[in-house]
């Protein structure tokens, strides 16, 4: 079952356009939402949640149209933009006491379980927590109201490698029962190489790819060769980088010719992003 579907989402800003953003996510999977800074990740997430007014397009979650069933959907999803950045001087206990009242399916035993597991002390205040702890606390809030879908904007940025690893482990645990899904945006693609099932890649407000991570990585190849090899190949490359002794470039696997005699490697997500950004002229 599709737990999330975004169709033809458009939003116009004077400096930036979200152009026809469409993608969908099945129940039971993790989707990574990648793109450079300013590519439109946060705007997409905010438009999906009605925090930013979209110009057109439809969003549905848990099988319901978001615009028509906003409150019901919000009962069953969790979302966060960074960690807890509100009520920094208020005791977590008090914040929780407020939040729990809003959810029909709030479960105190789940709350206690995760607070304990993450070694979170609810006598502390958000200002006394590390950024990893703040993110964990907002996850605890989402888990405690039994969210079926998590929409997370940059949950891993600002975390040290150990904290990131812990978090990713938790994400995989979250989807293990096959009922729940996570969409999370990040520009740290190594996080996704590990656990993501699907990747949606946005650049300059356009979705460039949205498919399984395995397929995506198989669809591209990193090629390296000498300067003479570059000229005839150029038209087929997505983008290339020349250096004093040769070049490297990204190519669609389907465009490869066995006669090319190039050094061929499987790219990482980061490689794909770097070459697409180069194509879009983003890093010039």
């Amino acid at each position: 079952m599709e737990i999330l579907s975004v169709k033809n989402l458009k939003k116009h800003y004077p400096q930036f356009d979200l152009k026809d953003v469409s993608f969908s996510l099945e129940q039971g999977y993790i989707m990574g939402f990648i793109g450079s800074n300013g590519a439109g990740k946060t705007t997409t997430l905010k438009s999906m949640l009605g925090m930013v007014h979209k110009d057109s397009g439809t969003v549905s979650m848990l099988g319901m149209d978001f615009a028509q069933h906003e409150l019901e959907i919000k009962q069953h999803i969790g979302f966060m933009f960074g960690g807890v950045d509100y009520y920094a001087k208020t005791k977590i206990r008090t914040i929780t006491d407020v939040v729990r009242r809003f959810y029909h399916e709030w479960d105190d035993s789940i709350y206690q379980k995760y607070m304990k597991r993450f070694a979170l002390d609810d006598n502390k205040r958000p200002s006394e927590l590390s950024s990893g702890m703040r993110i964990k606390y907002s996850l605890v809030l989402a888990l405690s109201h039994r969210a079926k879908l998590l929409l997370l904007d940059e949950p891993t940025s600002g975390l040290d490698p150990v904290a990131r690893d812990n978090l990713l482990e938790l994400f995989q645990e979250f989807i293990e029962d096959g009922e729940r899904s996570i969409l999370f945006s990040t520009h740290i693609t190594s996080d996704l190489e590990k656990c993501a099932d699907y990747i949606t890649y946005i650049e300059r407000g356009c979705i460039i790819e949205s498919r399984t991570k395995d397929d995506l990585l198989q669809a591209y190849r990193l090629v390296k060769g000498t300067s003479e090899q570059l000229a005839p190949l150029q038209a087929r490359l997505i983008a290339s980088k020349s250096h004093a002794y040769g070049f490297s470039g990204l190519i669609k696997t389907a465009e490869l010719d066995p006669g090319d005699r190039l050094e061929i490697e499987e790219p990482t997500l980061e490689d794909i992003m770097i070459y697409y950004a180069k194509k879009e002229g983003l890093n010039e």
């Binding site: 039971g28 482990e169 995989q172 293990e176 029962d177 656990c195 993501a196 991570k213």
Partner: peptide, 14 residues
């Protein structure tokens, strides 16, 4: 499948 994915820290689809 999902347990294996979690244990190995790889995608369910893989």
């Amino acid at each position: 499948i999902r347990t294996v994915a979690k244990e190995l820290r790889i995608s369910v689809i893989t």
